[in-house]
Design a protein around this nucleic acid. Sequence first.
DNA 1: GAGCACTGC
Length: 700
Amino acid sequence: MANLPILQFEEKIVETVEKNSVVVIIGETGSGKSTQLSQILHRHGYTKSGVIAITQPRRVAAVSVARRVAQELDVPLGEDVGYAIRFEDRTTSKTRIKYLTDGVLLRESLSNPMLDDYSVIILDEAHERSLNTDILLGLVKRLVRIRASNFKVLITSATLDGEKVSEFFSGCPVLNVPGKLYPVEILYSKERPVSYIESSLKVAIDIHVREPEGDILIFMTGQDDIEKLVSRLEEKVRSLAEGSCMDAIIYPLHGSLPPEMQVRVFSPPPPNCRRFIVSTNIAETSLTVDGVVYVIDSGYVKQRQYNPSSGMFSLDVIQISKVQANQRAGRAGRTRPGKCYRLYPLAVYRDDFLDATIPEIQRTSLAGSVLYLKSLDLPDIDILKFDFLDAPSSESLEDALKQLYFIDAIDENGAITRIGRTMSDLPLEPSLSRTLIEANETGCLSQALTVVAMLSAETTLLPARSKPSEKKRKHDDDSNLPNGSGYGDHIQLLQIFESWDRTNYDPVWCKENGMQVRGMVFVKDVRRQLCQIMQKISKDRLEVRADGRKSSSRDDYRKLRKALCVGNANQIAERMLRHNGYRTLSFQSQLVQVHPSSVLSADNDGMMPNYVVYHELISTTRPFMRNVCAVDMAWVAPIKRKIEKLNVRKLSGGPAPSFKVPEEKTELSKNNAETPAVSENVESRIEAARERFLARKGQK
DNA sequence: GAGCACTGC
């Protein structure tokens, strides 16, 4: 601790903070900014008038940094120094230094918009540009203006972004604190390789044979490439002549590995053995692997993007930014001087790479964030002109308003409704919040809580797809898991949880049925949290069966599907006349299909339900709806009328010229001769189709 | 008939 570079700047930092409300700190890796800034300000009296809050984009970071600071100050964790993350608040009224995730601070600002418990707010790792940190930047800028002079803001950022943040805060001072990294030699390829798997393989084996000891970290884009490279490396290492070089262990590292596989990289290798770690960008920031001396950087990353006009997500392999490239290189210099092999030429780095990664706020659906901002009721703030460091497109903001309007969170003038206010109390995506509120009205809240919790945990629920036996979980005939009773995935998720519930939450049941124990326990936690919030909101005394051992009935399913329809009014699709493709109704109409992993299947006549709601549109090999639920046409009708009446201009508070959603004759019609021209009379046409289908079937 | 990087309330 004594040698941390930041401590040499203590005087300078304190002096600058004293004179300015906002200060940007450029602190490179190893500078100690996350643990020391709070202590420096504490030593100089900034905890006398309030608490120092330090936000982190990740839960583990908030906990581990708080723990370190408590140790350094020699106080018990949770008293003078504490942390707050979802499900876990380890602070008391005594707490002076509080580490928390950016999401928790946003939640706090709902109940205390002035955040006046805090004398100082430090937004750490702001260069990562998480959605929540970006919103906090805007809110904090406003608070600096409103709150008296006893409020200080510090923002930590990366070299390439510092000036920009400073400009955002009217040219506030920028302090540079050097890191404690060893020099890293950067080596560029002459040209982009044809196959970066083969190229990484060659470079890695070269290092292994020629270079002194030290682990090799290789950045790839995803699980598939990682597995390919791992097996190629294993092959190659085996074929090297015995005794010609040291031993090697090869580890894959990515998010869908079970935690016990991930932590293997933290145990030191046996002597005279080199480790190869083939990783996604999880090793860029989230996990730090000690002992790495060589980094191989493919120059690519897989990134999730959102298209606001189609409502569709996609995962694309794209070029990394300069900030990311430098972050990756830095991973080689933590223990001693290292080398970074970039599989691209210098000119590509210099001319093609963006300076910084496109912030999340410009790549995701903003429905939740816009609702959050609306619920703050800031009189001086117009959402569409909210002061963002990097503003999202107006198209993206209008998309958010449109979605919120479809699910009744805002009215036709864009004002937040009573329902919208209630929704913002729930830590969920808007469509899930809306589902819960509707379910509370119609008497299926218990079931809705389960489904919503299951959906929020979905990524941690399913096992990694490497086990072939579990690949077809949903369609295996010998699987004991319920099948959704013909209504689709939401009902199946409900049934799965109820099955587990009946075993009294037996972990063995999870293993036998291919569900991750950790994921299911998370579902239980989320469900409990949501249940507590709904207890406060509920109009009647809530009877939520938390541990009822009884299965839901068909009638329950029906109520639940109806609530899901209201909650997903922004995510409805109508089946095509003669085949089982669907067209989306709430966005620019597009042809989509039910994802093959869905349990929703065709009826005896070979036809899928006429209407479905979906949880997510994702474009992979083709556009798919993931997690679908069959709904009745009668429930869809009023929503369709609302969609037709939509006036986006009015929603965004502008004048109200007529604005018609392109409803028909879209791309879809061009590509597909079977597309119905108008969607009136759908019923009769579907009936006709069914007859034709049956006739064909009869002929065979 | 497909398979998804990483976070968070």
